[in-house]
Design a protein around this nucleic acid. Sequence first.
DNA 1: AGCAGTGATGTTTTT
DNA 2: CATCACTGCT
Length: 664
Amino acid sequence: MKKLRLKKKTSLTTREYSVDYKTSLNEEQYKAVMHNKGAALVLAGAGSGKTRTLVYRVSRLIEDGIDPRSILLLTFTRKASAEMLSRITSLLDTRAGKITTGTFHSFALKMLKQYYKQIGFSQEFSIIDQQDAADTIDLIRGRHLPPSIKKRFPKKNTLQKILSLSTNKRESTLATLEEYYPKYVEYEDQINTIFIDYHKYKKVANVMDYDDLLLYLLELLKENPDARKQITSMYKHIMVDEYQDTNRIQHEIILLLGGVDNNIMAVGDDAQSIYSFRGADHQNIFFFPESFEKCEIYKIEQNYRSTEQILDLSNEVINKAAFKYEKKLFSRDRIGDKPYLVAANRERQQSEFVVQQILELREQGIELENIAVLFRSSYHAFDLEIDLNKSNIPYVKFGGMKFIETAHIKDLISYMRLLFNPKDVVAWQRVLMLVDGVGPATTRKIIDNISDNRLNISNYKDVLPTLNKNVGITNLFKLVAKNFDPTDITYAASELAFYYKEYMDEKYDNVNKRWRDIETFLQITDQYNDLPTFLNDMALDPPINSLDELEPESKEDEYLTISTIHSAKGLEWKVVFLIWATEGKFPSAKSTHTIDSVEEERRLFYVAVTRAKDNLYIVYPFGIFDRESGMVLSEPSRFIADISDEFLEKFILTEDEEDEEIDD
DNA sequence: AGCAGTGATGTTTTT
DNA sequence: CATCACTGCT
């Protein structure tokens, strides 16, 4: 028989919660979770249960009768939003599935697919990635510039970066040039002309790049009161994760999404701001409270993740920063080993050491799931990957070149984009260049005719012969004009792949490897039955691996995570290896010119070390000849170089025939 | 004129 | 490894 007891009603609600918020959270977290109306900023240190706080707050709002559909949770990565959604669902129930989560970009896309008319697009607009954007800019660059000044003029990737930075920071081209590319200031006019043309070009082609998603959403909210009213009355409770990494344009969007009540909760940590290359400013987070008349500030500082030894080291790293951060992490009675600093003779020894340690850890019963190897740049892991393969250690790599970004997959996706949006001249450009005998000049001629509607997939039989006699082009048009069933994506994709294979056989030596990628790609298409959704997902939430990660059995299998630090953000592992902690590699020689960029690298280092729960190994190869600087790199990273033995156990690797232990 | 093949060069980090 | 400038070929 159940015993009745008296429980005090809280002032907020007349019902009891099914989740016991008070006892599952610490006091700081609890306060943030119970925050009700108006703007709020939650400053949460690394490992302080930031995700937990957000998850509980969403759950609490729903339990208080808030319609889940009115909750918008913006996260930085798709992984983070998936993780949160599953945690909320398991904490509460399926009501959680009705909330809207995603990145700024995916949310923008969702809105713009509804309000496309208001911004002058048609609904079939497609998304182009950074590379497509750069290629398109290159096309326009080629049209504008006389060959004489081409040499000193910024290249396509630089132009794309300039435009992206100025868009994200909401600055003029001139301001961006002055700050980041002073040597190109003299070309301001030409650069602007190219940008203006690029903008028009995209509109005609009915495509948007990543920045456009944000830009047009901002424009919509600003200039269309009706749309804004509808959107703000739909999403009444907004939460933004990783606020320190948002930039100006995202900040402005958030302010406009605020609606009448400004029910916006931003969560972040200024010490973990690592996206300045995307226009984020680590101090941005402090502008947040200033944007509202009233904004509650909550601080969560107790760390639940790491041992005191790891926290002590982390605090040492961040306290040496030129700019002082407000928090200091502390834990409660989590005692462990001191972090290791290991000197390895060249990269070879580093890889061998990491593999050997991982095998040993596994024997000690630590599963691969609980181990991660982190690095500054994707290519830092190449050598290690060879050893992991040799030792049959299954792993998944995050960050760096994605499977979807390889040339052959992008080619295939371009054909598919044309099936959906035959005016997508960015895709046309890509696939036309693949036709034998077709180069930039012919491509330009054809897409000009597509742009001004003289040529299309219904009249190509008559019009094309007047432009070019190349049979390959006619065949390409024939293929795109075919009436594929838009719900049978796999069929369309395999037909296109079949057509494409001929080109691949000609062009590539490693056709087999690439064809396997295409087969994997075909498996992915199998999970979709609607072309637009498929294309959007490929643009914004692409799958990471070319390995058969999709097969359910391999998902069950345990695997090691190796990841760039950027992609490891927000995650944690029992044991973390940080490799290439060599001065000149981390921070890289390129980042040491300005204080700001060194400080960004320091925060990145801080993010890396705070991922570890129990054990942390920092490894640095020495005796590395650096081509770029012409110097031999032999010192550990400046971020740990002068940290005393009190915080760090220092080792050098020696090679013993039998003894496998580390020796100092 | 326009294309393709060749050899040197450079390279973070993500939506 | 992918991009860029250069050169020779059609």
